[in-house]
Nucleic acid binder design. Structure first.
Lengths: 145, 145
DNA sequence: TTTATATCATACTTTTTACGTAGGAAAAAG
DNA sequence: CTTTTTCCTACGTAAAAAGTATGATATAAA
């Protein structure tokens, strides 16, 4: 029940880009220095974020990356799901749902589905801007199962 | 962000014991047949549940296992945490919390702590009896970060 | 008291996934 | 045309997850 390092780093990269956003492209080297991760490892993560349309990238000298949209237009959940897939706790309630031999009359599937829903609602209740600003003031959600 | 098979099986074992509770000890063989898992694998899981005080076990002929308390006295979260540990999404907000070189001024730690809280509140909002009865009627929690 | 049936304890194997590294191609700017 | 950067893909290693195997120990019943 853990978020992978790729998911964690992806979020930190996006926060870093939000906090250092000045309209210019920011090189991975700079992010790597600040976040204490190798450029090579970040390349993989940023490549996935790029393909998912999360950022704009430019090659070559003075190239780099910047956010594709304003930071308050990203739900944190969107970013995490790029690296982690749907955040479902078990495969049978994932997307696509995995087949399960015990499906009929399974006493747990709806419970798991509800957990996935709760997790996704939580991570979607914050924007990238919230984290970049460290704005974690109390917020209340209600959810139903 | 997945629950392990041990966590899933542990829950199914407990539900099975709740549904077939007749005061007698129930042999792993019976559970294994119903749940389509090997006895040998279940032994490991049940051993952990037993050590955690989740059930009463009896060796020997006509031995087996039964719940240590009424099914409505188990929070589902208790059962899951036996197999999964605390259900925190990252180690730095776990119990015990792992050291992190980037601690000071980390923009994500409180976000992760909140996610762990939400997950634990959800799994603790159901009792074993709820799942055994398939009683997943809507319930609403509110949580704060 | 022997036998059959269970749990209990531990170690081992296998498979999968996570994590990180490496090498080089392609593009852009100066 | 050189430097700097992203881009692409493959590879390696280590850790964790998943499942097996062996044998000891306890209990009830024959």
């Amino acid at each position: 029940m853990k978020i992978s390092t790729k998911g964690r780093y992806a979020l930190r990269v996006m926060i870093d880009l939000a906090q250092h956003d000045n309209g210019e492209f920011i090189a991975l080297k700079d992010i790597a220095d600040r976040q204490q991760v190798t450029v090579k490892y970040l390349e993989q993560i940023v490549s996935a974020l790029n393909k998912a349309g999360m950022l704009r990238s430019m090659r070559g000298n003075s190239g780099g990356h910047r956010l594709a949209r304003p930071a308050d237009q990203y739900r944190v959940g969107e970013i995490l799901r790029v690296m982690e897939g749907d955040l479902s706790p078990v495969d049978c309630v994932g997307d696509p749902p995995a087949a399960c031999p015990m499906q009929e009359g399974c006493a747990t599937v709806e419970f798991w589905r509800g957990l996935g829903r709760v997790v996704n609602q939580y991570v979607d209740s914050y924007t990238l801007q919230d984290l970049a600003d460290q704005d974690l003031t109390e917020r209340v959600l209600s959810y139903s199962i």
